[in-house]
């Protein structure tokens, strides 16, 4: 029903993101999807990768503040209105969306959207009821 996303706290300073991604690469972690939220002082790097718990541990060992969050991943048609439809279903269920980002799949056709919502189960149920399947971690790699 949901996938595990790793979030990493990165200071908003030149080179910090490069340093973090080099560290991730150096430990053989392949990023499937990512997004960055930024403020004046800091950014939050959010990534989807295989074996999230192990990858998070590796990041912690490297001194990075890391957190693992369950987020929803939904396959989305490459057609106008697809995203709006999904957001409307989630909204109608009374669930609020904290943030969202997109990435292209490899095993499946089309794109995925990641949704960070305040109630995964409720949003997933509403989507299933509307015939939209959420994706499991294993479907993505």
């Amino acid at each position: 029903m949901s996938v595990k996303q790793i979030s990493v706290f990165i200071e908003n300073q030149p080179g910090k993101l490069a340093e973090a991604t080099r560290y991730i690469a150096g430990h053989g972690i392949n990023l499937r999807a990512m997004s960055i939220a930024d403020t004046k002082d800091f950014g939050i790097l959010r990534v989807i990768c295989d074996d999230p718990e192990q990858s998070a541990e590796v990041l912690r060992e490297g001194g990075y503040i890391t957190n693992v969050t369950e987020v929803l991943a939904v396959g989305i048609n490459d057609a106008p209105g697809s995203l709006a439809t999904i957001l409307e279903i989630i909204a109608k269920a009374g669930v609020s969306v904290e943030y969202t980002y997109a990435f292209l799949g490899t095993r499946m056709e089309g794109a995925f959207m990641i949704f960070r919502v305040d109630d995964n189960a409720k949003a997933a149920a509403a989507l299933e009821a509307a015939g939209i399947k959420t994706v499991e971690q294993s479907d993505m790699f």
Binding site: S7, F9, A37, T39, I44, I65, N67, R116
Partner: peptide, 12 residues
């Protein structure tokens, strides 16, 4: 500290 961190900007 690590336990204070969350994935959303709002919480920080």
């Amino acid at each position: 500290s690590p336990e204070m961190f969350s994935d959303t900007v709002r919480e920080i």
